[in-house]
Simulated assay, not measured.
Amino acid sequence: MMKESDTAGVVRIDDMEAKVFKALLYFVYTDTLPKTMKEKEEEDVMLQHLLVAADRYNLERLKLMCEDKLCKYIDADTVATVLALAEQHHCSGLKKACFSFLKSRENLKAVVSSEGFKHLSRSCPTLMEELVSMLAT
């Protein structure tokens, strides 16, 4: 005789916030992104987490949708984080959009002194080489 445990039928996913997993499931069932994200900053962060989840579960269409939306959030405050994310998760379109943003002298000057950019240059030196060669042409 088998005794059922209290967690029968429960699947634990410890490395993802519940709201991100809920959005992932929403996409799987509807093929669309949830429209619940209101504030710009909240949506930006949610899309970053959702992109990571999409990459992890090999949901290419969701990954591309997140990538496309994240391109609209690139600014001096977010570009370093978004560029690191693009590099880690092989998002060529998002990476290209970040590089395009950084082509502007004003944008580059605003970003270079930021902590995020300093962290990016330490953690992704090959990305910095790519950026410098892109700016040199």
Rank of each mutant, 00 (worst) to 15 (best):
E39C: 07
K40M: 09
M65A: 13
L33I: 09
H89A: 00
L50M: 08
R61I: 09
T78K: 05
A84N: 01
E43H: 07
A53I: 03
E60K: 15
H89I: 00
Y57H: 14
A54Q: 10
Q48F: 01
E39F: 04
E39Y: 08
M37T: 13
Y57I: 05
K38T: 12
E87D: 03
T32G: 11
L47E: 06
A84G: 02
T78Y: 02
L47M: 11
Y57W: 11
E39G: 07
R61M: 09
K63Q: 07
E87I: 00
T78I: 06
E41P: 01
M46F: 05
E87S: 00
R61Y: 07
Q48T: 03
L64E: 14
H49S: 10
A53P: 01
E39T: 12
V45F: 07
K69S: 15
T30K: 12
L59R: 13
L83N: 00
H90D: 12
L51Q: 05
H90E: 11
T36Y: 03
P34G: 03
K40F: 12
M37N: 07
C71H: 13
D75M: 11
R61W: 04
T30L: 09
K38C: 08
H49M: 11
H49W: 01
D77V: 07
E43L: 07
E87V: 01
L50T: 05
